[in-house]
Design a protein around this nucleic acid. Structure first.
Lengths: 108, 108
DNA sequence: TGACGATACTCCGATAGACGGTATATAACG
DNA sequence: CGTTATATACCGTCTATCGGAGTATCGTCA
């Protein structure tokens, strides 16, 4: 099962090719500030997702003397994300049923 | 962030006190067979959740010469599960927005 | 009778993903 | 001129999970 940082990275890249630092900021926004990726987590995840075929390197640009490496999500990456969503939704539904069947209704 | 096996373990124990092996089977049912916990994962997670205060040992019984240790979810455990649900729902909603804003609509 | 599967817990080594931090470099801001 | 923002690279550590072996009882079925 895909973990939270990876889920958010794939989500961040989904609309259009993005570069590492841009993804870092997108993930922060997408998660309402809850997830602040460390550089180590980000670039390791990016390498892994490329190796797994969920992302590909789209292009490399030099902007203001700094390298920007753009990553693009693949059809496989989209499929991974969609399957992950379905699985999470199924788990959530199951958890809600379990919580609602508690005697002392702690579930709101 | 809580991981899938832990999420399902907390969900499994939510309705009523359950023992290790029963939780193992519940998790399999709750996840539609997708998650089959290894004993190592289960009992390590149980120990961890007790140490963290999400579960408590409810009772121990000997049934047919075999020990059964029952775990009960605490209010804190219910809170952890509810917060986890909210967070996952928020991530899913964000991912769906991202996927729907793709040019070539791969999101169904 | 004896093998097998289900029940039930214990223990251990390996792995992968994430954490936390440092390093390097440029540009912009005050 | 120091700090923050931009942007990537690298490294050691940690932790949950994986994968499997071990111990033991009970029921089934040939």
């Amino acid at each position: 099962m895909i973990r939270e940082p990876t889920f958010l990275i794939l989500s961040a890249v989904a609309p259009r090719p993005s570069h590492g630092y841009g993804i870092l900021k997108s993930v922060e926004v997408l998660s309402d500030g809850r997830v602040r990726l460390r550089p180590g987590t980000l670039y390791a995840a990016l390498d892994r997702l490329v190796a797994e075929g969920s992302l590909v390197i789209d292009s490399e640009q030099v902007v203001d003397g700094r390298l920007r490496r753009y990553y693009r999500i693949t059809d496989e990456g989209v499929a991974v994300l969609n399957e992950s969503i379905k699985r999470l939704e199924s788990n959530i539904a199951a958890a809600k049923v379990q919580l609602s069947s508690r005697p002392g209704i702690e579930f709101a």
